[in-house]
Design a protein around this nucleic acid. Structure first.
Lengths: 206, 206
DNA sequence: TGTTGTGAACGAATTCACAGCG
DNA sequence: CGCTGTGAATTCGTTCACAACA
């Protein structure tokens, strides 16, 4: 049943985007959508996107597009996106606090259930419904609460240390906003997002 | 001289990371570095990274690593990263204001010279050294000031409109933080960063 | 020995081309 | 006719293997 056909990273990324787009369509009351439109929303061609869909077993809609609701449901199951995930946020600088109440996380099944900073000052000052702790309690709290994801918004100097602590505490995934590439054991999935590097990339190509 | 050997996107991305890492090494006073270390900093293997370097003509260091300073210089020239670029920031919500004084931008040759929001309220409230304007003046200001880059931090609903305006005003590159994939003419280089989708991607893989 | 440089082999991903369905 | 589904061809990128150098 669960065809663990090892989806490629690119395929997963595109299908995740499609999933989000289908959600938006559903809210707008749209019932049917073509591969071409989905491709545009995912930033791909329709060939590629249909191939992605066929890889996860979505097939048989050989008429005029895919039904929004059921496709979303199917993708949600295939990508394991139906369950809400808990996350720990580390670093409450400007970016961290912006992420702390980034509404789109909670609207899409990601719930930040603990946040950490090294400055007692900040911990006391920030008003939030999320529990905030000093970073030295990271391993303890993340472990106890069985938090699944780590979101890193600390300076580059401490990013690898925070990564190691999160891994030791048992998270399965890490989203790293610091400007260094962090390293994890192979079983941990992580993504590095470096704003400055994205600007460099753009500058180098223009 | 300028071997426009059409670098691949992956190569550019990695070399940009290397460039940033070399800068950090230089500040730490390190003078020499191996391809292995550069590869780790870029999240790649040393084979791949050496191939990247050879593509931009960096070769001939067949002994014990590359000299930090001169390699940084060379990459800076090859990637066109030596000149400071101006950027316009659109959207001053939580993320936008965080980006407004993200120190790493200015430290790395990117200067936000104008910011825009649709809310007069916010425009008046935010204290910043950057000039802030109502978004309806975007085309006018970006055009006049010949701003090169656009950074989008508005909700998904307005992202494509803002994109179109930026393109019309003449920017050459766009960094889009909204949760939709925006579309531009082929001559414009743009990258879409969708936090929620990155979390989805991680969740789907764990 | 440890490191660079590079052609050759390999593998992955996209695009092409076309059959089939409504 | 427009859309889906999929094998084949092609392009692209990485890894391998090894020579050369210090």
């Amino acid at each position: 049943m669960t065809t663990a056909t090892e989806l490629s990273e690119k395929t997963i990324e595109r299908l995740c985007r499609v999933y989000g787009y289908l959600d938006a369509l559903r809210h707008r009351g749209v019932e049917s959508v073509t591969s071409k439109e989905l491709a545009a929303a995912a930033g791909a061609t329709h060939d590629t996107l249909r191939k992605d869909l066929s890889v996860v077993g979505v097939t048989g809609f050989t008429r005029a597009g895919y039904p929004v609701a059921s496709l979303k449901q199917t993708l949600g199951e295939k990508l394991n996106l139906t369950r809400t995930r808990t996350a720990a946020l580390v670093g409450l600088g400007r970016l961290g606090t912006a992420l702390l109440d980034y509404a789109r996380f909670s609207e899409n099944g990601f719930k930040i259930t603990a946040a950490f900073d090294s400055s007692i000052n900040k911990i006391e000052r920030i008003r939030s419904s999320v529990d905030i702790f000093p970073v030295r309690r990271l391993k303890e709290i993340v472990g106890e609460r069985r938090i699944e994801l780590g979101i890193i918004a600390v300076p580059g100097e401490s990013a690898q240390q925070v990564t190691d602590d999160l891994v030791e505490a048992g998270v399965a995934g890490i989203l790293n906003f610091s400007p260094v590439v962090v390293h994890t054991p192979a079983r941990i999935v992580h993504v590095d997002i470096d704003f400055t590097n994205s600007l460099r990339f753009i500058a180098a190509r223009m």
